[in-house]
Design a protein around this nucleic acid. Structure first.
Lengths: 340, 340
DNA sequence: TATAAACAGGGAAGCGGTTCCCTACACCAA
DNA sequence: TTGGTGTAGGGAACCGCTTCCCTGTTTATA
C-alpha cells in the first residue's frame, strides 16, 4: 500500500504539502496540487485511517453501543430502524460505524475496551433498563455520547426519544372515541424505564379525560417479546369482565395478544380491539393488520447521530432531550365495541 | 488518557518493558512485572488500539460488508441472524465489528474507503447479485475475506453457505409426499445467483423423482420482498389449472403469497399448501404458521467468522466452500391436497 | 520604491505503541 | 581465569500522518 511518502516522492514535494492537498489547506499552488493529485491517482493512494487517528485525534469511527444481548436486539425491528438511521448519517459524514454489543456478562470488556482504547470519536447508546452504566462511563471519559430511544432516568441529557406520553394518549383516546370503556393494558417492564411510565401516564390521562380510571386488574406486564404478550394477556381475556379493547405497549406483544385472542376464538376487532406501539413491519402482515402508534425510528437514529456529530465537532456542549412526534396509524384491529 | 509512557514512568521502567509485560514476553522479572501491572491498574491504563494498529500491523477490526441498501438488509431477518453469528465470534476473539454498507451509488467510497485505508484486518462479505466487485477488490489488496450466504459464481472460494439444493429438494419432496402433483414455484431473482439456481435444480430433481417436470407456467419470479411474493403469485392463483401447492424460495415472499391467497378466499392449507425458505421469526407469527426450510443463519455467520480468523492468522491460505445443512420445519401451511 | 501582507513550500517533532538490537550482569563449564 | 549462555532491561528507530513553525518569494499598499 502506498504511503504519503511515496506520493510525496513521486510528486517531488514534501509530505507536508501532500497533507495540505489532502486537507484542502490553502496556500498550495494549483500546479503543485495537480501534480500531487496525479501522483495519488497513479499510486492508488488512500491515506491510512489508523495513522490519521494516531496523529490527529480523530478515528472517524463512532460506536453504536447496544447494551443488550444481540439476540434481543435483532429481534426488535424497531431498533433496527434506529440503526438504519444512524448508519444513514455516519455514512454521509464519511464516518465508520462500529457495532458494539455490551453483553451483560462482560459489560466491562465488550465495549469498555473499545471506548477507552480511544478507538471511537463518539458513541450512540441505545437505552434500556441497564444501559446507564455504559453512558456514565462514556461521560466520565469525555467521549461524545447520545442516547436514543427508550429513555432512562439517569441520563436526562443528550437524549433523543419519541413522545411516549402522546402516543399512549392517542392510542387510548382512539379506543375511547370508538366507544370502548373497558380497556386492558399490556405494559413493558416498568422498572427504570421512563418510556413505560410515560405511556402509562398517557393512558391514564386519556382515560381521565373520559372520566375513567385504569382498573389495576386490567394492567399486566410483559417484556416486549411476542411470547410475553401472549402470556401476559391470559388474565385479561379470562377476566369475568373481559375488556373490549387492549392497548399493548409494543407491536410484538400485541402480536402475542392477537394469538391468544385467536386461541380463545375471539374475533379481532369485533370481539376485541387491539392497539400496538412502534409500527414495525410485522404489523402489516398479521391478520388483521394492527392499528398502532408509529414511531419515527429511522428519524430517531438520524437525529441522534446528527447531534452526535455536533458534539464531536464541539459545536455543542450538550443538549436537552429531543422529543419526536408519533402518529396513530389506524389499520384493521380496532372497531366499535360489541353491544353488550 | 494514560499512555504507555505514563505507565513506564510510574513503574520506573522503560516503555519497552511495559510493552513486554503487555505482550507477556518472557525475560521480565516477576517483581518488575508486578510493579508494571500495578502501575497500569493505578492509571487505568488501556493501550491505544490506534497506536497498536499503526505499529503492529493489526487493527483488531473486521468489517462486515453488506453490499446492498441497508434498507434492504434490515428488512431481511435472515441476514440479521448471520450478523448475530458474526458478532458472536468477533466478540469472543476480542475483535471489533465494523458495519460497512456498500451502497450501489458509492461502492467506491463507503466500504472501499474502509478497506483500502488499512483499517481492517479482514472482511466478511454478504453475497448478492452485485457483491462480487467488493470481493475482488479485497482479494486484490490481499485482505482476508470470507463470503457468506447467497453464494455467487465469481467467488467460488472462501465461502460459507447453506445447502440450497437439498433444501429445495426436501421442500418439494414434502409436498409430493403429501400427494401434491401440481406445484407452483416462486423463485428469487435468478441472475447470477447460484443459490437460486440450486434451489431450482433441487425442485426439478425432486419432481423428477416422482416422474414429474416443472410446468414453466408455474414458475414465477420475485425479489425476496413480501410485496414481490404477492405480485408474483397472481398468475399462479389465476391459472385455470391452479396449483395445489406453492414453494416460495424465501419466507417473505411466502408471506406475500399467503396474503394473495387470503384475498382469493383460498384457505391455506386446505385449498393451497405453502412452503417457504429461511425460517425467519415471521413464519411463526402469520396465520397459519408456515412450513419452511430452516437455514442455520446464526451458525453461518459463526463459521464464516471463524474461518476468517484462520485466514487472518495465516493458519489457512484459502478454503473450499463450506456447506451447512438445512432442515425442513413442518408447521401448519401444508396439508393433503383437496380431492378434485 | 520601501515594506507589510499574502502566498508556497518544507523541516521536524510528535501521536502511542512495537520491536530490533544492544548492554550488563550472573552463573556455569572448561 | 576465560568465555559462553541465559536472563533482565533499555535505546531508539519506525509505523504514516498532521501540524507547528520557519524560510523565501510575490503581490498589494502607502
Amino acid at each position: 500500500m502506498a504511503t504519503i511518502y511515496d506520493v510525496a516522492r513521486r510528486a517531488s514535494v514534501s509530505t507536508t504539502t501532500v497533507s495540505k492537498v489532502l486537507s484542502n489547506t490553502p496556500y498550495v499552488s494549483a500546479t503543485t496540487k495537480a501534480r500531487v493529485l496525479e501522483a495519488m491517482r497513479e499510486l492508488q493512494y488512500t491515506p491510512s485511517l489508523v495513522a490519521r487517528g494516531l496523529s490527529g485525534n480523530r478515528t472517524y469511527v463512532v460506536a453504536l453501543v447496544v447494551p443488550y444481548e444481540l439476540n434481543y436486539l435483532f429481534s426488535d425491528p424497531f431498533l433496527l430502524e434506529i440503526i438504519r438511521g444512524v448508519e444513514d448519517v455516519t455514512n454521509e459524514k464519511d464516518y465508520n460505524l462500529l457495532l458494539s454489543v455490551a453483553r451483560k456478562s462482560d459489560q466491562r470488556s465488550a465495549y469498555t475496551r473499545l471506548l477507552r482504547t480511544g478507538y471511537v470519536d463518539g458513541a450512540i447508546t441505545i437505552e434500556t433498563f441497564e444501559g446507564d452504566e455504559a453512558a456514565r462511563d462514556l461521560e466520565a471519559r469525555g467521549i461524545a455520547r447520545v442516547s436514543v430511544g427508550y429513555r432512562s432516568d439517569a441520563n436526562p441529557i443528550n437524549n433523543v426519544h419519541c413522545d411516549d406520553y402522546r402516543g399512549a394518549y392517542e392510542a387510548v383516546t382512539h379506543l375511547l372515541k370508538l366507544g370502548h370503556r373497558r380497556i386492558g393494558v399490556v405494559s413493558g417492564p416498568a422498572r427504570f424505564m421512563i418510556a413505560m411510565e410515560e405511556r402509562l401516564r398517557g393512558t391514564q390521562e386519556a382515560l381521565a379525560a373520559y372520566g375513567l380510571t385504569l382498573d389495576p386488574a386490567l394492567l399486566v406486564y410483559g417484556d416486549f417479546t411476542v411470547e410475553s404478550g401472549y402470556r401476559a394477556s391470559k388474565p385479561l381475556l379470562e377476566n369475568p369482565e373481559r375488556p373490549t379493547a387492549i392497548f399493548a405497549m409494543n407491536d410484538r406483544m400485541a402480536a402475542g395478544v392477537l394469538r391468544r385472542a385467536q386461541e380463545y376464538s375471539l374475533n379481532v376487532p369485533t370481539d376485541l380491539s387491539l392497539v400496538g406501539f412502534d409500527d414495525i413491519p410485522l404489523t402489516g402482515l398479521v391478520e388483521p393488520p394492527l392499528t398502532t402508534i408509529h414511531q419515527p425510528a429511522f428519524r430517531l437514529g438520524q437525529v441522534a447521530t446528527q447531534k452526535l456529530f455536533e458534539l464531536i465537532n464541539d459545536e455543542l456542549k450538550q443538549f436537552e432531550p429531543i422529543v419526536l412526534p408519533v402518529e396513530l396509524v389506524v389499520r384493521s384491529s380496532t372497531a366499535l365495541p360489541n353491544q353488550p
